[in-house]
């Protein structure tokens, strides 16, 4: 019986193996080719490297990758932090408080979720120029927070709306202020939602390219995607350095993903909300 089941499952495994190969081959080529001596890269495209040549990584690192990574960390962390804070407050008000115009505000925020950054790029750029935010971190952080808010608010709203009213009332009777309730009761209970929003927004912002492309031109402020493009421009024929820069910036994301897979999947799946 069990043999039969296993035999029956062969096609399933074959299918997944074949598909995984399609995903893994380019990624493994990236890693292998980045440590190949330059000549072998072109003369022996299919072979493993004869010796490990870390020169590409060295050149990539000296090319300023750390600076790009630091910029991305600053922009992503501040944007995600602000999104959680501002989105959390707004969602809490919408879910737990009664006030005039509640439905209207909620519908407006839901509708805002449908508006893509690409569609309002030109006036958004004008706005950023008007506030003199080009070539500043805030030129990215403020729009990133804005475009993250509708998602954050919808996820938090769905989470907060199920909070038992009794819990809040009890805390209020204990003399907690609204902010106190938020901090001591709501935040600890909302960790799964916070993780989902943080991860989804974090991945989006870390990888965002179009807005960064028009807002940041100063090399000292470039985020990782811009840095990679600049890097390709500066090291045009140095393939190993380009491959190294791609792998240096991609592998940490892959490791994070494997380590926090459950949270990642929940966060990414949250985008259907």
């Amino acid at each position: 019986m069990s043999v039969l089941i296993r035999f029956k499952r062969y096609p399933a495994y074959l299918f997944l193996l074949a598909y995984s190969a399609i995903i893994l081959l380019p990624l493994s080529w990236l890693v292998i080719a980045s440590v190949k001596p330059k000549r072998e890269l072109f003369t022996k495209p299919f072979s493993l490297p004869s010796t490990l040549d870390w020169g590409g990584y060295q050149r990539a690192w000296n090319g300023g990758l750390l600076k790009y990574i630091a910029n991305s960390v600053i922009v992503t962390a501040s944007s995600v932090g602000l999104t959680l804070l501002i989105g959390g407050l707004a969602a809490y008000a919408l879910a737990q408080m009664k006030f005039v115009g509640r439905r209207l505000v909620y519908s407006a925020i839901i509708a805002a979720y449908a508006i893509p950054l690409h569609g309002i790029l030109v006036p958004l750029y004008d706005t950023i120029v008007k506030y003199q935010l080009t070539n500043t971190y805030f030129g990215l952080i403020l729009p990133y927070v804005t475009f993250g808010l509708p998602f954050a608010i919808t996820v938090f709203y769905a989470f907060f709306i199920d909070f038992p009213v009794e819990l809040m009332e009890a805390s209020r009777l204990d003399g907690c202020s609204e902010l106190g309730i938020l901090w001591r009761v709501v935040v600890p209970l909302s960790m799964p939602a916070i993780a989902s929003v943080a991860i989804f927004q974090g991945v989006q912002i870390w990888n965002e390219f179009l807005l960064a492309l028009v807002v940041i031109s100063d090399d000292a402020l470039k985020t990782v995607p811009l840095g990679l493009v600049a890097f390709r421009g500066n090291y045009v024929s140095d393939w190993t350095a380009i491959l190294s820069s791609i792998s240096v910036t991609s592998i940490p994301m892959l490791i994070l993903f494997v380590a926090f897979q459950k949270q990642f999947m929940r966060g990414l799946a949250g985008s259907e909300k």
Binding site: Y19, S20, L27, W206, N207, P225, M253, L254, Q261
Partner: peptide, 15 residues
């Protein structure tokens, strides 16, 4: 398999 299939999602399109 899920780890493998989902992994490109966290990479940047630029990379």
């Amino acid at each position: 398999f899920r780890t493998i299939i989902f992994s490109p999602l966290v990479l940047s399109i630029v990379a």
